[in-house]
């Protein structure tokens, strides 16, 4: 299978602390790949490194390939222009710009090869609330609306691949499923997606495969179906909930 995005021996250090150790991973065409792990396992550090981006000062070594091209030396804005669209954890829209202005910042590059193009109306169809809120500033949006806006701008940029770090954080349980279903619908149109999410149970319903990260190392990888029965996943992520479920 052709990999749209892959990492080879990716290692990320913050000062003396190694947050990601020698990670190899790949996201194939039309695949939804999840990364799971405990708090502080290095999930955000890993996806940020793929995008060449960080709010801190990490030292990254190893290679990142986009459609077979080594992009390890490219600054984040060039990776974004090249179709590597990253929606980071936390603040991911401009609070002092309106919804409209946030979306208008995005420009599609000249080179459309391999990119998934979404028209304005398609994006509005996916997230109708954004249209209602188009004249509101980012600061006036709810957490879920911000998440939608951040995903909308990533789609308007014509992604080759989408990286989503905690897209469902802070959402009501019912909305988590809705957001992941939207993501799945994009994947079904062919867009590869890498998603980090705390809600492993929900993510496993939608993803094709899952990488398990522990203290910066990949300790497990497999299809969603097989990972559902993986001991470590059961114990760390599904066990509690499974017990609760049984009690009800």
């Amino acid at each position: 299978m052709t990999e749209i995005l892959s990492a080879r021996s990716l290692t990320v250090r913050y000062g003396g602390n190694t947050a990601v150790h020698d990670v190899d991973l790949g996201i194939g065409a039309g695949r939804m790949v999840a990364v799971a792990g405990a708090n502080g396992a290095g999930k955000s550090t890993l996806v940020n490194a793929l995008a060449g981006w960080s709010r801190g000062y990490p030292v990254v070594s190893g290679d990142v390939l986009l459609d077979g091209q080594n992009i390890s030396r490219l600054p984040p804005h060039q990776r974004s222009r090249g179709g590597l669209q990253h929606v980071p954890e936390g603040k991911n829209v401009f609070s002092e710009l309106t919804v409209e202005e946030n979306l208008a910042l995005v420009r599609l590059g000249e080179d459309h090869a391999g990119r998934f193009l979404f028209s304005r109306s398609e994006v509005i169809d996916l997230f109708p609330r954004l249209h209602e809120r188009r004249h509101h500033k980012g600061s006036a949006l709810s957490g879920g609306e911000r998440q939608m806006l951040a995903m909308a701008r990533a789609l308007l940029a014509g992604p080759r691949i989408l990286l989503l770090d905690e897209p469902s954080v802070g959402l009501a349980p019912r909305l988590i499923g809705e957001v992941l279903a939207v993501v799945r619908s994009l994947v079904d149109r062919g867009l590869p997606v890498l998603v980090v999410d705390q809600n492993v149970r929900a993510v496993l319903e939608f993803a094709d495969e899952l990488y398990l990260l522990e203290r910066g190392r990949i300790v497990g990888h497999g299809s969603a179906a097989s990972m559902k029965n993986d001991d470590r996943i059961l114990k760390a992520y599904l066990g509690d909930l499974a017990v609760k479920g049984d009690l009800q």
Partner: peptide
């Protein structure tokens, strides 16, 4: 709008494809 976005958050602007 680009100037205002970079003013607010130069790092985030990079993810919008802006060379801050």
């Amino acid at each position: 709008a680009i100037i205002r976005s970079v003013a607010e958050d130069p790092k985030l602007a990079q993810l919008f494809g802006i060379d801050s």
